[in-house]
Design a protein around this nucleic acid. Structure first.
Lengths: 331, 331
DNA sequence: CTGAAAGCGCTAACAG
DNA sequence: CTGTTAGCGCTTTCAG
């Protein structure tokens, strides 16, 4: 592997000149440039990014830490985010180091430590669920951080969220406007911000329509297919006429229940799910859902990060993206 | 950020000793070790990986290059692979740099160039579709490479593939055994290895059952939902009684057609799709599919890569993983 | 059992 | 308009 020194010798200039030609950091005579380019080509030179990083304390790399669970469909959501991030990053000459906390706080800490010594230029993190991790103490302060999708309690800093409350509220509103009064709400474990916000939206919508809140219509449990199936069954038996399911895995389970028991949608039971996947289009009937702008979240996160990297230090930026209600045939 | 020098001073030893304590690379008296550990703790020292990489020419980072297309469901497949890779990598103290070629040969070349100057320790690549890229010329030879999912024509080197031919053959066999003789085959554009292999499996199965191959039952097109819908329609009108759809996006389109037109599955039309997604369980009827072991492919790729990194230079290793036929209600 | 010191490849003062 | 040179933080030979 040719080094900058080799190029300098071949081009009969100094390494400084070569460096400046590469980086355009000072004026170099055209003729000299030519020589340098020729030498670089001859030697098939390409700069050693590691050395560059060491010297310039900049790696052109940003980290992404996501909480993926094996076999969880919600992974698709984070992967869309990753995709959005990678895309914007590439356009800006940055690389993406991907890491997974497995939705586990200890692993997350470990991964942050890894990033701390890795000299990343920034970090996008979708934090694990859970109350209190003193994130402020975990970062070494040498790179900006943007939180995404979930905001840890009490964390103040750049955050890209999606409007869970509003998204849910609108969806439930549609159900209410169709005349439903007994609306079941199926959610993954409560106590995590996204779930709680969605529940809030549900309550708010009900309140606005002066429908009494019935606690027994709220069904909570681990976000699994089976649980979704089971909770849909319970609600069905309790006589609800509409279902709002606050995550995609449980949506699938719920649909499965309705199908298996020949419950006619939307006549006997209306349903609105969360997250938009292609298969929802071919469900029968096609499923109405609250669609989260995953790709856009990734983009927004990187854009914010790049601003910070480029020296913006103003306040903190909290972006709240709107989700979109996609009405199909299931309600 | 404390450096090794700071630690050395604080512990009143040389930097060499600190380094050896950290890496366990030579004997150090227990007493000295204590001092070093204490100093490290005091200073909250953590080694600078960039400097370490520069010096030791090893980054503990491997690259992954996948061909994702925006909005393509098959992304899930590659993301599962990425997940498997990340997991094994983490267990071994490696990091993952993720990159996307967007199924575009030029972008792929660019990304390889980026990796070349990044000092990665290895690369896993799911190459873009297409005939001839002289991959051998693109890699700088300083890191081992493992190809995954697709083998470029004429490439010799470590490869992790899935047995497309066998997977398809078995699936078609099931259809044949149920008495179907007119079996439609819907595929993405032919000419790419995975599609071609699946078609081969189809033909082989037919041949073994002495069913004449009917070219008009083979429908090819870009792997989109719409095209899947359309081709299913064409085949239906040509009177086939069973459908084998060789990729998941088109499977979705085909199912959509059958549903929209009230074609009873499996009575009026049996169908087997490709790739296993959760939604297939709740299709009505649940879809039978050929399941590819994505996560396992990722694992296998990294394991092979790590072998190479650790000095194994023997021959080339071609792993062919079996896909699994998942029979549900659609055939 | 430990230290001194060279040097990985690059950037960026400083000096002309 | 260009060159000299001091490091970035670490590993590793060589020398004791």
């Amino acid at each position: 592997m040719a080094s900058i020194k080799d190029v300098a010798i071949k081009a009969e200039v100094s390494t400084a000149t070569v460096s400046h030609v590469i980086n355009g950091t000072r004026y170099v005579a055209d003729k000299t440039k030519e020589k340098v380019y020729a030498a670089m080509k001859d030697l098939d030179y390409s700069p050693n990014m590691v050395a560059r990083s060491l010297r310039s304390r900049k790696s052109n790399t940003i980290g992404l830490l996501v909480p993926l669970l094996a076999e969880d469909t919600s992974n698709f959501f984070f992967m869309s985010i990753a995709n959005g991030i990678e895309q914007v990053l590439k356009e800006n000459g940055y690389n993406l180091v991907l890491s997974n906390s497995n939705e586990n706080a200890d692993m997350e800490k470990d991964q942050i430590k890894v990033f701390n010594r890795q000299h990343i230029d920034g970090l996008v993190i979708a934090p694990v669920n859970g109350k209190e991790h003193r994130y402020e103490d975990q970062f070494n302060g040498e790179y900006p951080v943007v939180f995404i999708d979930r905001r840890p309690q009490g964390y103040k800093g750049d955050t890209i969220l999606v409007n869970n409350r509003q998204g849910t509220k609108e969806a439930v509103e549609v159900l209410l406007n169709k005349g439903h009064e007994k609306i079941g709400f199926i959610t993954g474990t409560l106590g995590i911000t996204t779930s709680d916000e969605r529940l809030e939206g549900y309550k708010e919508s009900l309140a606005q329509h002066h429908i009494a809140f019935n606690k027994s219509y709220i069904k909570e449990g681990p976000a699994t297919f089976q649980k979704g199936y089971q909770l849909a069954e319970e609600l069905h038996k309790e006589g609800v006429t509409a279902l709002f399911v606050a995550n995609n895995v449980m949506t699938m389970g719920s649909v499965s229940y309705l199908q298996a028991n020949d419950v006619k949608v939307p006549d006997q039971m209306a349903i609105i799910g969360y997250d938009d996947y292609d298969w929802m289009k071919i469900a029968s009937p096609p499923l109405s859902v609250v669609r989260q702008p995953a790709f856009e979240m990734g983009k927004a996160a990187v854009e914010q990060l790049l601003k910070r990297i480029h020296g913006d230090t103003e306040g903190t930026n909290e972006v709240m993206l709107n989700s979109e209600l996609v009405i199909r045939g299931s309600c």
